[in-house]
Design a protein around this nucleic acid. Structure first.
Lengths: 202, 202
DNA sequence: GTCTATATTACGATAGAC
DNA sequence: GTCTATCGTAATATAGAC
């Protein structure tokens, strides 16, 4: 109990620890509905102190969204997303995307809610469309392989699948130790995959 | 071609015609990201003129959200939602909710995005929870009737079902006359019902 | 019903002391 | 690294002329 990393509560902020606070407030009030004054109160330091750690409000948004995008795109590089039949790769990506949504919940929530009012937000939307496109290609391939029900419209199915997955940010809350208010993370991923693929697979 | 209602373009605003413009901008920029200046530019009149028609920005939000809630709750009063087995009533409500989302798209979109920063927004969230609760009861009853797959968690299924339906506001755009960029409204409703109930029904 | 002008407050960001 | 004080701008809303 001597060194600097030993203290239980942080006595000064780093850009990252400040980000944790900011992202929570952004999600509670919406990005545009959050002022620097709101952030300073939540962090327990003055407005001007925040500017010592980050260049401004938009940098906090950019950092948060980057983290979300990194998590999502990295799943596409995993073996399960790159090897095997398209339908199986799609199921793998569906499961992993669901898991990333839950593990990086506040960051992905922010990503899914941007409206495109600033350059940062428009960049986020473009990157997100890229990701959606990659998954849509898997669905298209699975359809060509004959592994999707013939009455399924691929374009529509892609959107309903993402709709179901992305809706997690509206209700999923991580389980706290001891008290389990919510389904466990792997149960949720199972349910999403099962529900979605019941309507898709041949 | 003489009377006042004959003109193709409105030369003055009513609260309702102003609402149409405001709701479009709210959805493009987000409610908090929209200023009265933005609204005045979109409407082609000055800021102060807007105050002649409505008390302020929040009244526009309240009017829009009321319209969305009226549409949603009215489906629960229709015969198909009140008679028959719970699973069939659930399917009916799912279809009709999907249809209302599409026919009242900009209004429902706004409803689904409020964050609770003002009294109006908190009222909207409470009413929306009421609606969700009513549908959740149908799912619960269908489960008790033995009409749901035994491995389906009712709480989770409710959320995934709403997630799929509500995600429509993120991508559905009404078809324009002549050029059909999107699936027709009844095709979408069919797909939603089919995809969702494939994972639910026994 | 719409306008210009303006009151008042809130916001993002900076300066400079400690 | 954090603070108080403040700048310049943009926000909601009102007053009063036409």
């Amino acid at each position: 109990m001597a060194a600097k990393k030993d203290t239980h509560k942080r006595d000064t902020y780093t850009p990252d620890s400040l980000l944790t606070v900011a992202v929570r407030v952004f999600n509670e009030r919406g990005y545009d509905g959050t002022s620097m004054e709101h952030l300073s109160q939540a962090a327990g330091i003055s407005k001007s102190s925040i500017y010592h750690h980050v260049r401004g409000k938009e940098e906090l948004l950019r950092r948060a969204i980057s983290r979300a995008l990194d998590g999502l795109f990295s799943t596409l590089e995993e073996p399960g997303a790159r090897e095997g039949r398209a339908i199986d790769r799609l199921e793998y990506v569906t499961r992993r995307t669901t898991e990333v949504l839950m593990s990086e919940l506040p960051y992905v929530t922010l990503l899914l809610r941007v409206r495109g009012n600033t350059a940062t937000e428009r960049w986020a939307m473009a990157r997100r469309r890229e990701f959606d496109q990659r998954v849509a290609e898997l669905l298209k391939q699975a359809s060509a392989d004959g592994d999707l029900r013939p009455d399924v419209d691929v374009r529509l199915a892609t959107r309903l699948l993402f709709g179901m997955i992305n809706s997690l940010v509206e209700w999923y809350r991580p389980a706290r130790a001891g008290r389990d208010g919510n389904a466990a993370s792997d149960e949720v991923a199972d349910a999403v995959v099962r529900t979605a693929f019941a309507g898709l697979r041949t």
